[in-house]
Simulated scan of single mutants.
Amino acid sequence: MKIESQQRFLSFSLGEKDIALLTLEYVQEIFPIALTDICRVPQMPSCVFGVYNWRGEMLWLVNLEDMLGYPPLALQARFSSKLMAIKLLYEEKSLGVLVREIRDIEPFDPQFLKSPDGQLFSPEMAPFVQGYFVNPAEEILICLDVKAILQTPIWISHNQILS
Rank of each mutant, 00 (worst) to 15 (best):
M1H: 09
K2C: 02
S5R: 12
S5I: 11
Q6N: 15
R8P: 14
R8K: 15
F9C: 11
S11H: 01
F12L: 11
S13Q: 09
S13D: 13
L14H: 02
L14A: 00
K17N: 12
K17I: 05
L21H: 01
E25M: 12
E25W: 13
Y26G: 00
V27S: 03
V27Y: 03
Q28F: 06
Q28S: 13
I30E: 01
A34F: 05
A34R: 09
L35N: 02
D37I: 02
D37G: 10
R40S: 09
V41T: 12
V41H: 07
Q43E: 15
P45R: 08
F49K: 12
R55Q: 05
G56E: 03
E57Q: 12
E57K: 12
M58R: 12
L59F: 09
L59G: 03
W60I: 03
L61S: 04
L61A: 07
L61K: 01
L64T: 03
M67Y: 04
L68R: 08
L68S: 04
P71V: 07
A74Y: 10
A74L: 11
A74V: 14
L75H: 11
A77K: 15
S81L: 09
K82Q: 15
L83P: 01
M84Y: 10
M84F: 13
A85D: 03
A85K: 01
A85N: 04
I86L: 02
I86G: 01
Y90A: 13
E91G: 03
E92P: 01
E92Y: 12
S94I: 08
S94N: 14
L95P: 00
L95V: 04
L95W: 00
G96V: 03
V99T: 03
R100M: 07
R100G: 00
R100K: 13
I102W: 04
I105E: 11
I105L: 14
D109N: 13
Q111P: 04
L113H: 07
K114Y: 10
P116H: 04
P116D: 03
P116Q: 08
D117F: 06
L120P: 05
F121K: 07
P123M: 08
P123L: 13
E124S: 15
M125C: 12
P127I: 01
P127Y: 07
F128E: 01
V129M: 08
F133E: 06
N135W: 06
A137S: 14
A137R: 13
A137Y: 06
E139L: 11
E139V: 04
E139I: 04
E139S: 15
I140P: 02
I140S: 02
L141M: 13
L144A: 02
V146W: 10
I149C: 08
T152R: 05
W155L: 14
W155E: 09
I156L: 06
S157N: 08
S157Q: 05
H158I: 06
I161C: 07
S163Q: 15
